[in-house]
């Protein structure tokens, strides 16, 4: 529309972040430091989970404090299917487990979407603090269900003995697994970008800015928010499945409210509603965790200070600092 420059400052920063995230594990692999590959994979997966939440929170203004539910459900989808495949015991009604990642991802995404619809339909009748609390309550219900269900490890969690398979890729090799996660992250960022610029994205962002205005033009905010909540849950669920495969382990801690909080923190650190906000946030978060965690057990105290600084002085997060205020064309 307007004669904007070919590359905005934000596009340059986003490209640099994407290249940096790719460069870390490639460099680490060349130097024979697999630990850093795992660290980068963790960043990519947490960023993916936060890209999901960013659809609801960043675009829609829906502060879900229960997205760990979807992260964990995705994780359990991977864990449960892999366990049944490993043991050769059918799930139910003769349906076998599977060690194939694409199938596991599909199951994780579908399950999260189906569970997000009723949770969203009930939660979205409330707003503000009540929405935060009701999403938390649903996530806690699922958390306690997982803790008290012994068939899949209960409190102790569930191990995945061999990382699940992806056609044509040796997933046991750390760099290959990183690349899978990286590609999925980039695809999710592409989806976020498309959504944000689409008609649906326009309605969703209008619902955040002024729900009355949206209703006054004849678009019911509830329907728009519900679809956004479900899509958001599906992306976060996919990240959960990848996270389970990264750790070869899934436990109720993936479902806990700490995890929900962590995802919100990632978005606030990076810049909510920004395309690469979750990536910047996840990088910063894992960096703080790793750097400060090596010095002190109380690294979360310092994370708290940084978060306080961001909330007080840099509302737009890291991307707001680097790329300036978001513009909506």
């Amino acid at each position: 529309m307007t004669n904007a420059p070919l590359m905005t400052r934000e596009t340059v920063i986003n490209t640099l972040l994407a290249l940096l995230l790719l460069a870390i594990p490639l460099g680490a692999s060349a130097m024979g430091e697999p630990f850093y590959i795992t660290l980068a994979t963790r960043i990519a997966i947490l960023a993916l989970a936060a890209v999901g939440l960013n659809i609801a929170l960043g675009l829609g203004g829906l502060v879900s404090f229960g997205h760990a539910a979807f992260f964990g459900l995705g994780g359990y989808a991977a864990g449960i299917l892999a366990t049944h495949a490993f043991d050769g015991v059918p799930l139910f009604a003769g349906i076998p487990g599977t060690a194939s990642m694409p199938i596991i991802w599909l199951v994780a995404v579908v399950v999260c979407g189906l569970i997000a619809l009723p949770i969203g339909a009930i939660s979205l009748r409330t707003t503000g603090v009540y929405f935060i609390m009701i999403t938390l309550a649903f996530a806690q219900m699922i958390y306690y269900f997982a803790v008290s269900w012994p068939a899949y490890g209960g409190e102790d969690g569930l191990s995945i003995y061999v990382r699940n398979e992806f056609p044509g890729v040796n997933t046991a090799q750390p760099l290959s697994y990183f690349l899978i996660c990286y590609v999925v992250l980039m695809a999710a960022l592409g989806l976020f970008w498309l959504l944000r610029g689409s008609r649906f994205g326009a309605a969703l962002q209008a619902a955040r800015q002024n729900a009355t205005r949206l209703a006054a033009v004849g678009i019911a905010p509830f329907n728009v928010r519900l679809v956004a909540f479900a899509v958001s849950a599906m992306v976060t669920g996919l990240a959960g499945a990848l996270f389970a495969d990264l750790n070869k382990f899934v436990s109720p801690s993936m479902l806990s409210w700490h995890m929900s909080g962590e995802l919100i923190v990632l978005i606030i650190l990076g810049g909510k509603g920004r395309l690469f906000g979750p990536v910047a946030g996840a990088m910063l978060y894992v960096l703080i965790e790793y750097a400060l965690g090596g010095i002190t057990e109380r690294w979360q105290f310092f994370l708290g200070l940084i978060l306080l600084g961001v909330v007080l002085f840099a509302r737009g997060g890291l991307l707001g600092l680097l790329a300036g205020k978001a513009r909506h064309g």
Partner: peptide, 9 residues
């Protein structure tokens, strides 16, 4: 309003 991909601008 439920078209998800085509850029509006």
């Amino acid at each position: 309003s439920f078209r998800f991909f085509r850029p509006v601008m």
